[in-house]
Write a protein that binds this DNA or RNA. Structure first.
Lengths: 228, 228
DNA sequence: TTTGCCAGAGTGAGTGCTTACTCACGACCA
DNA sequence: TGGTCGTGAGTAAGCACTCACTCTGGCAAA
């Protein structure tokens, strides 16, 4: 097997381990076992456990393919709703998605908050830089169109409030037995969307009008930077 | 020194260690050092490291003194605003509070989400059981008074959305270098309150009227169950 | 084609150190 | 004098990390 391929396999296995057990809770032995290699070989590819972890975090900061189509949409109330809806839908799927890719990212992200926060900071900067402008532009358009009341001078904060709400929702659903059971789970996505859209200032009629439309399935996707 | 007092000192020291480093990242040696005793004595009081951790989590589920006055208030729009304002104020103080007591609780809570979630589940049940009814009653009163529009059939979910927003805000501010820097930090508390109050359905006039009032300093307190 | 060689993939039994946990024994006090 | 608070030097297991070694495939010389 080539060195590069082996590296990737190790990184993939290690990501699973670190996401599930945190840095201190993960042993190099367990990573080697997960990658089906000896510990010796592991250390041929990565000089230390820390270096391996650092590389995983760095890798998670890269790339974000499917997000771009969202950001390419023209600013409008509709785009704003699609954005929020995509964000909510994306995070609510985290715990159910089969590949666990997003759950791993959420775990790494949360672990970072409890650690030095550096990884989380990078990711927040990335997310804010990517989605922030589109969010703000659409919110301004919505205000201009009379679909939203202007609230406060810091629309980006509103975006973060929305992000916080759904990220924490996903976090409560992460364990095998969820930490929190929401009432009427069927309508949860809709309820969360409404809460957020009202929170950022959209009017009731605008919310009702846009949420009752069907949304293109293409848009129910990413938001933690990089998609599944 | 009496056995009971020693126990308490150990628990307090251990809580600090576990909160900062998580379970796997904490050594019994470091706990003993933090409590200024030998490891031997530590194991005289607690049979295993796990038992010590379990006791800390169990202890965190107890008691909640200053919260009761909030819950004793008559249901009303005013009470609802006071409640939300208290919740926001409480969580925004978490990272700045000198005693770190609340920061520790937040760390334990977050760690639980990444673990089996059992501790978080207990705490959510407790919080929901305590504050939920008061929140719902006040929201219904607000609707009856015309201060809020009725939205959805599950008001408790709205409470959790609000809780999520502020808990995540606190989490981003936990590391020495915050993960996220909000625009216009001075007005942040106000902005978060407005976001939440709008989100749960309060009308703009009602929000403006109640948020512009001064709030009694007694109410800026707890919400994670048990106060500082 | 065969032979000899070598770079690098891969191993597993180590290394010393740290970990959770124990135990024999002193210090203090009713 | 017995109980219990407290210690510090253990122990075995587990940790991150190393090293001497084998195996394999490709390639140039014979």
């Amino acid at each position: 097997m080539t060195s590069d391929l082996r590296r990737e396999l190790i990184l993939s296995a290690a990501k699973r381990c670190f996401a599930r057990n945190g840095f201190a809770g993960t042993t190099t032995k367990s990573v080697a076992a997960a990658a089906s290699i000896s510990e010796g070989l592991l250390f041929k590819h990565f000089p230390t456990k820390s270096a391996l972890y650092a590389e995983i975090l760095a890798e998670e900061c890269e790339a974000d393919p499917a997000l771009n189509k969202l950001l390419g949409l023209a600013p409008s109330t509709e785009t704003l709703v699609v954005l929020v809806r995509g964000m909510v839908g994306h995070f609510l799927q985290v715990s159910h998605a089969p590949d666990q890719e997003e759950a791993q990212r959420l775990r790494l992200m949360t672990n970072s908050h409890l650690d030095d926060g550096e990884f989380a900071r990078l990711l927040y900067e990335k997310i804010g830089g990517l989605i922030g402008p589109a969010f703000i532009a659409s919110l301004e358009q919505a205000i201009a169109a009379g679909d939203a009341s202007p609230v406060g001078r810091e629309p980006l904060n509103l975006f973060w409030f929305a992000h916080h709400t759904v990220l924490m929702m996903a976090l409560t659903q992460l364990p095998a037995v969820p930490c929190l059971t929401y009432a009427e789970a069927a309508g949860l996505e809709r309820q969360a969307c409404e809460f957020i859209l009202r929170g950022i200032g959209l009017t009731e009629p605008a919310i009702a009008a846009h949420l009752d439309r069907e949304v293109s399935p293409d848009f129910g996707l990413p938001v933690t930077a990089e998609s599944a």
